[in-house]
Amino acid sequence: MSDKNIRSVAYLYNEMDPSEKVEFERDLKVDENLLIEVETLRKVSRKLQDMDTIQPPDDVVNSVLRSLESRKSAGSRRSQKFVYFSAAAVLMLGLTVGFILSGEGEIDMPGQPESESASIGTFQNVVPASMGNANSTSETDKLMPWVDHNDVLHFRDGLYGSDASSVDSIFRQSFQKLTPITNPSQSPTARQNLHLTGSQR
């Protein structure tokens, strides 16, 4: 198809740049065949302006509107779920924060510096009931509080298995290896050498 033919349609449907339009109109004045082509196409195109439409059946339109309604109810269900989940999340967050805050200050070890009692407080929070039993034994009664070089006691989760008695014995053995600290601020080397770990070896 020649460029002229395509241009005639572009001209007819006003899809030309102003400069192209001027150029095409100049061509129309000198090319009679082009003028006939454009006018013929224009005549048919005008007929198409009167093209009527067909309405969709009512039941089809109504079914679309029903799906619109169901979208709304699905949307409201989604928003209800969102509210429920948000409330649950806030509640869980509140409970967690409350639990953490209530845990603090439970430990009040007399004669200990503040930094040490804080680390021991953490120790108390993480140690389960089995460890509590260990604390009540004669060996642990003699045990003085101690801290590592970071002022933190390190325990591994593996220690808190279901077998409480074996855990207790491991702890007791571990405690026997410990050396009590009489003056924590003046014995940095001793602190570095003492680590209570969860290793069973």
Partner: peptide, 19 residues
């Protein structure tokens, strides 16, 4: 775009024949 314009032209020519 040229193909689209070309199709429109053929459509108009065919419609003219039908009319």
């Amino acid at each position: 775009i040229n193909t689209a314009l070309g199709r429109m032209r053929y459509a108009l020519i065919n419609l003219r024949k039908m009319f």
